[in-house]
């Protein structure tokens, strides 16, 4: 008799026991939903958390990525040996033409300065660069960003533009102490005010996670042809004006697609642009870090 009652009691409590067994799991799932909502609404908390974890993981990822980069470099060297002679010849020709361009550029720069002085134009703010290395890609098909090993300690600020030798790479989206995340111009969330260099028409470069971001909000009367250079316009005060972004790749039904100058799979060394502080401020602030930044 007692045994029968025990059996039926167990059968009654089984659903409750199953729920209690699964409760921690359901709690965790609920926690992820809460985190997603909080991350969307209260972005400062999410940013701080992300910055802290990135700071912690950055040295580790950097260390792990070095062998990969080194072996890739080695393979590159081996394949380069094959084309050494032709490359040398073409490089010599490029150097010669670049020296010519350098002379022209210097002449134009001094002419520019004297003309600006003549017109009493306000001089551009002094610009400083911080060099950094990319240590991690975004590991996600839907997010286009890279991690670099420069952060607050190096003088980087949120929103600073990031460029490399070829053109504009993106902007600093998240800032940590030792590392920060760069939102590339091809990312879904990237919007950059640009100019078509030849016609000076203003537009917005909108990324959409493909390798060819789109040019939007161009006036319908504007004439844009394939091969036109696109540069930053400097509107909004984020990017210095005149930085090269890319050329018009195709003009078609799905909009105007830009071919960026930057080769994304060879993105290793970048420079973060930050505007220098105006003359009087360093004395007021007087801290050594600012002096260090300004001395560069």
């Amino acid at each position: 008799m007692a045994r029968l009652r025990a059996g039926s009691f167990l059968r009654l409590t089984t659903p409750v026991r199953l729920f209690a067994h699964r409760f921690p799991f359901l709690l965790l799932v609920a926690a992820t939903l809460v985190l997603m909502v909080i991350g969307r609404l209260e972005t400062s908390f999410a940013e701080r958390l992300r910055a802290n974890v990135t700071d912690f993981a950055a040295p580790i990822v950097d260390l792990i990525s070095r062998p990969v980069v080194a072996s890739r470099a080695l393979l590159g060297e081996i394949s380069d040996l094959a084309t050494l002679r032709e490359e040398n010849q073409s490089l010599r020709a490029t150097v010669a033409s670049l020296q010519q361009s350098k002379l022209t550029a210097e002449r134009l720069a001094s002419e520019n300065e004297s003309l600006r002085a003549l017109l009493n134009l306000v001089p551009d703010a002094p610009v400083h660069f911080v060099a950094a290395r990319t240590i991690a890609d975004s590991g996600n098909a839907f997010v286009r960003s890279v991690l670099i090993d420069a952060g607050r300690h190096e003088g980087v600020k949120r929103g600073d533009p990031v460029i490399n030798g070829e053109g504009v790479v993106g902007r600093i989206a998240q800032l940590g102490n030792r590392a920060s995340r760069v939102l590339l111009i091809t990312d879904w969330n990237s919007r950059i005010p640009v100019l078509v260099e030849s016609s000076r028409e203003k537009a917005i470069l909108a990324g959409d996670n493909t390798r060819h971001p789109r040019l939007r909000y161009l006036p319908s009367t504007a004439a844009v042809a394939q091969g036109d250079r696109i540069v930053t316009s400097g509107h909004g005060g984020v990017f210095p004006p005149g930085l090269p972004i890319g050329t018009v790749g195709s003009v078609g039904e799905d909009g105007i697609r830009i071919q960026p100058f930057v080769t994304w799979n060879r993105l290793e060394f970048v420079r973060i642009v930050n505007y220098g502080l105006k003359g009087a401020l360093p004395d007021l602030l007087g801290d050594s870090q600012t002096k260090e930044i300004l001395r560069k």
Partner: peptide, 12 residues
């Protein structure tokens, strides 16, 4: 946190 996805997405 490392890949730049919204926090909680891959966790969930």
């Amino acid at each position: 946190l490392l890949s730049g996805a919204p926090i909680g997405l891959n966790a969930g």
